[in-house]
Design a protein around this nucleic acid. Structure first.
Lengths: 218, 218
DNA sequence: ACTATTTTTTAGTCTAGGCTAAAAAATAAC
DNA sequence: GTTATTTTTTAGCCTAGACTAAAAAATAGT
């Protein structure tokens, strides 16, 4: 059994490994956990003793298979609970992260098995992120900003970068929500603006709009 | 916000106050928490500083109104989660305590509000214990052993004392489960055996049977 | 009422996880 | 290839919460 602090470190390292490949530095860990590098070093050394990760001084840490298994179990719990909060309790998808952050540390394999069944074994969470199965396998998807797509590419909306009420209301008005398919019909290289297709509607979006919408390309 | 340890102390003191009235001793707290009296003393002093309870050296602790409010909120959460685990996830009522013990510490008033609605604002948990409302008010019920009832008294089954598979199977066979109404038709003072009525059936139960069944009298 | 026993508190220590400041290694700059 | 700078680690300290052993208060036995 791992402590709350240990689980949070493992999860953070896992997420950092997903984006930047190779070993992750203690500074990177500390930054993304809002703590100090010295604390991260201590914990990384402790987790290395427990064979959760491999650690080379001054080089960084890398989760072992054991560590990855622990991490995916936490991610699985986090995302299943998010589905519960949104689908069953009616939370909006941008309100659930903090609560899931707590729920992901509840220890009970039976609970997760039953929760998964209760929710219909969902493959994605409300933000469009894939939910690992009980063996830790999950569909690897690429999450980009809409602004990174080019003409005639398409993606499915999976989230927003900065969620102000104004922006969310704009999306609402344009009928864009999680799961909405978006086709890029044209892109202006001068200012990065685009013409996109949503359902049967076609319209213009500024770079600012496109810079704050995450899409998933399969 | 209170730490996990603080919440557990507050909850324990609350439960001890329910049974034995008056101040509760640090030893009683330590016993029921599987810790040492010195640890309990330390924590009680800390909680007294925070005005959660009043504490007189060598005399014991008593929750203040503030403390009681905190305690009932935790109890409310615990019992709502138990209803969730049994009603929605299909756990058996004697498997849920440990999990609820973890879930009761999740912090989010919105979550509890929504969970309550989702469950249909239940008044009792799967063990027959009353669930406090959002203001901390709850129906006070008396939970006794079946063997404590006398002739022509009646109660509703709310739990078992020691739950062996054999005993649970016996109850099953006799169609006794949580919520079943039991009338005591006769009681033999010599050996404590009884004749009881369950539904339309009337039958004999030994003292041993009656000693392990909790009933609630309203 | 005085001693013996039990209960409760205090004093001092330990571990987990943080932190700051200083030292050491790695990297960058000439 | 030295020196300067940045990154990372070490050393030492702090707090929460637990523990043990000793002291102090309360209770019981005569």
């Amino acid at each position: 059994m791992y402590s709350l602090a240990e689980e949070n470190y493992i999860k953070t390292i896992f997420h950092l490994q997903q984006t930047k490949s190779g070993a992750v530095s203690t500074n990177a860990i500390a930054d993304s956990m809002d703590t100090k590098a010295s604390s991260a070093t201590d914990m990384v050394q402790k987790l290395a003793d427990k064979k959760v990760l491999s650690y080379v001084k001054y080089k960084g840490a890398q989760l072992t298979e054991k560590g990855k298994k622990i991490a995916t179990r936490i991610v699985r719990k986090h995302r299943l609970w998010e589905v519960f909060l949104v689908d069953k309790l009616g939370f909006h998808w941008d309100e659930v992260h903090e609560i899931a952050e707590q729920l992901e540390h509840i220890h009970s394999t039976e609970l997760i098995k039953r929760l998964d069944t209760f929710l219909g074994s969902p493959a994605f969470d409300p933000h469009g992120d894939p939910i690992p199965d009980e063996h830790g396998n999950f569909i690897k998807t690429e999450k980009k900003l809409l602004s990174q797509l080019n003409k005639s590419q398409s993606g499915v909306c999976v989230g927003v970068k900065e969620s102000s009420p104004e922006y969310l209301q704009y999306l609402d008005k344009k009928k864009i929500s999680i799961g909405t398919k978006i086709n890029v019909l044209g892109k202006e290289f001068f200012d990065g603006s685009m013409v996109i297709e949503v359902g049967r509607d076609q319209f213009f979006v500024s770079k600012k709009i496109a810079d704050n919408l995450y899409v998933q390309t399969t």
